[in-house]
Write a protein that binds this DNA or RNA. Structure first.
Length: 555
RNA sequence: GCCCCAGUAGCUCAGUGGAUAGAGCAGCGGUUUCCUAAACCGUUGGUCGCAGGUUCAACUCCUGCCUGGGGUACCA
């Protein structure tokens, strides 16, 4: 099954004979070369050891090659190339066995169980209910959800959680923004401050309130009535939830920061920190002694006004995550929160918790442009493009793909004009089209009387296009696992584009050369090629599922 | 000032210390009586921000600098 470790062992054994003076184990790097005429796996071991021991790398390489006794059923060729690389080329029988395996495993192909069913919590979006989700939130939403899907595919027990705060200054301003718009609805003239929420959605909420409550709230006595805040929060949260559902994102838990106060978990943290001598009072505020925890300055956790800063509830929340029994805790933050997590981690260590369970994934911001014009996004100033507007324009699949196709650590340049005008050129269609094309060919084959569930003889697949396709399909499990392990979803779209290209090339070969057509007059090769089509469909379908993107059977 | 991220083709971006740095889009030129032309093939396009260093080997690691973004609050 695992040719790689087989080869690794063979090299190891041979090296012990050739270089007995180095009796410790060798660290053998064995990776797939970029260029296909360099074989399927290559090692630089002769270069590394050659320079260490002062020997000629090419000569050392040839000693290693001559000393190895590899099964020709597994490895067809071994070459020495360039300055001393050793290139291994697999025998085709490995590919044929692998292909059968894909067709047998179906939906399970690519999944893994190394997650060990570990309880994994992933927190993301976590936008406070002050306005609709924007393109800025979209990146985090899609990133978090896809990391969750990757972890599920690799055997983790995942909980998606949305943390929010519906108290504090932000919400008071929001409530008062609604109140002023409400008064406007009643025909009163009001002065609407610049730093209040300018968005039209506030007017909508106010209009609805005016219809429901009439003029009953117009008196100054109702200035701080909870009604304004509550109606705003409900309307905005309903909107956020429906946007998320539309994107295929479902949260298991919505966690209200307020509950940390109500259950006494905030006080408990302060008490515990004081007990450990890691919190102290100064200038009327409570400080976390972060300098004792390896950070460069102490931080205020309770302001002199008596209000906690964000660090305290964050700390209590993370403590709660561990207390709820999560083995792995993943936080997805935007770049603006980059400074907060060292404090949280330090606080957790201070409380005696193991902070290595926490993994933080930081993504850079989305810069929105319209043509050359840069748009500065702000919820307060109503200067934003909502996710719903984007999805109206380009659809869910393009939206998800757009955010996923780039590494989280890179800035994302979102050109609105380009997104609209080039939506048909988006690579997501390229991948989906490959899937649809396969479905079409399988339908066609069934009409010709082929049983598409029958497993044919894979050894009939010998063209370059066919072998290339099998090889790339066999990479799929490794790509899924490494994307999950590194929390890097963008590896998957990149891979799937390559699969689609390789498939299109394979099918196109039949247009040029009649004997390479999938459904041909030869029933045996047709059956084998249909298996290859099915295997490709399985990889594309499983990959698109992990990305949360639809896989159309017709386009 | 200090800290984090980024800088790769005209544009948007991939790239595991390795061999001749890739893709999509845009440009140019081809391919269809056919299982989907939403495809395929060819071609144009590069000082991998700049300068040093480590290494047999650097887009990749280290140092400094430049540019852009973010942080450095008793804001979140």
């Amino acid at each position: 099954m695992n040719v790689k470790s087989y080869i690794q062992n063979a090299i190891q054994t041979t090296l012990k004979e050739i270089l007995p003076e180095q009796n410790q184990g060798f660290d053998i790097d064995l990776t797939a070369p970029k260029q296909k005429d360099h074989g399927d796996l290559a090692t630089n071991i002769a270069l590394v050891l050659g320079s260490q021991s002062g020997r000629n790398p090419r000569q050392l390489a040839s000693e290693i090659v001559n000393g190895m006794d590899l099964d020709p059923e597994l490895v067809a060729r071994v070459d020495i190339a360039g300055p001393g690389f050793i290139n291994f080329t697999f025998s085709d029988s490995i590919l044929y066995e692998g292909l059968k395996e894909i067709v047998l495993q179906q939906e399970a192909y690519g999944t893994a169980d190394w997650g060990g069913n570990k309880k994994t919590q992933i927190e993301f979006v976590s936008a406070n209910p002050t306005g609709p989700l924007t393109i800025g939130h979209g990146r985090q939403a899609v990133l978090g959800d896809t990391v969750a899907r990757l972890l599920e595919a690799t055997g983790h027990d995942v909980t998606r959680e949305y943390y929010f705060n519906d108290a504090g200054r932000q919400m008071r301003v929001l409530a008062d923004s609604v109140r002023l718009r409400y008064l406007e609805q009643l025909g009163m003239s009001v002065e609407f401050p610049d730093d209040y929420y300018q968005g039209d959605y506030i007017r909508d909420i106010a209009r609805e309130l005016a219809q429901r409550k009439g003029a009953s709230l117009q008196d100054e006595a109702f200035k701080d009535d909870a009604c304004f805040r509550e109606s705003a929060e409900k309307a905005i949260f309903d909107d956020i939830r429906s946007t998320l559902e539309r994107m295929g994102i479902h949260f298991d838990v919505y966690y209200n920061e307020k509950s940390l106060y109500e259950t006494g978990k905030i006080d408990a943290v302060i008490k515990e920190l004081r007990k450990r001598g890691l919190a102290y009072d100064q200038d009327g505020a409570v400080w976390l002694k972060a300098t004792d925890l390896g950070l460069d300055q102490d931080r205020v956790i309770v302001k002199s006004t008596g209000e906690p800063t964000y660090r305290l509830p964050d700390l209590a929340y993370h403590r709660d995550k561990i207390d709820r029994g999560f083995d792995i805790i993943i936080d997805i933050f935007g770049a603006d929160h980059i400074a907060t997590y060292p404090d949280v981690l330090a606080g957790m260590r201070a409380l005696g918790y193991d902070d290595s369970r926490v993994r933080v994934l930081i993504h850079q911001f989305v810069t929105l442009t319209e043509g050359r014009e840069k748009i500065k996004m702000s919820t307060r100033k109503a200067n934003f493009v909502t996710l719903d507007e984007l999805m109206d324009e380009v659809g869910v699949d393009v939206t998800r793909y757009f955010f996923l196709n780039r590494s989280a650590s890179a800035h994302l340049n979102f050109d609105l004009t380009l997104a609209k005008t080039q939506s048909d050129e988006n690579p997501v269609y390229y991948i989906q089209y490959a899937h649809a094309r396969i479905c079409s060919i399988l339908r066609h084959a069934e009409e010709q009387g082929y049983d598409t569930d029958l497993v044919g003889d894979p050894t009939l697949l010998t063209s370059e296009e066919e072998l290339e396709l099998i090889k790339i399909l066999l990479d799929f499990p490794r790509v899924v696992s490494s994307a999950a392990e590194h929390l890097e979803p963008h590896r998957l779209p990149t891979y799937l584009e390559n699969v689609a290209t390789t498939y299109h090339r394979f099918q196109h070969a039949g247009k040029v050369d009649e004997t390479l057509r999938v459904v041909s007059s030869n029933r045996e090769t047709t059956q084998a090629r249909l298996d290859l089509c099915r295997a490709t469909r399985i990889v594309l379908a499983n990959g698109l599922d992990i990305l949360g993107i639809s896989r159309p059977e017709r386009m």
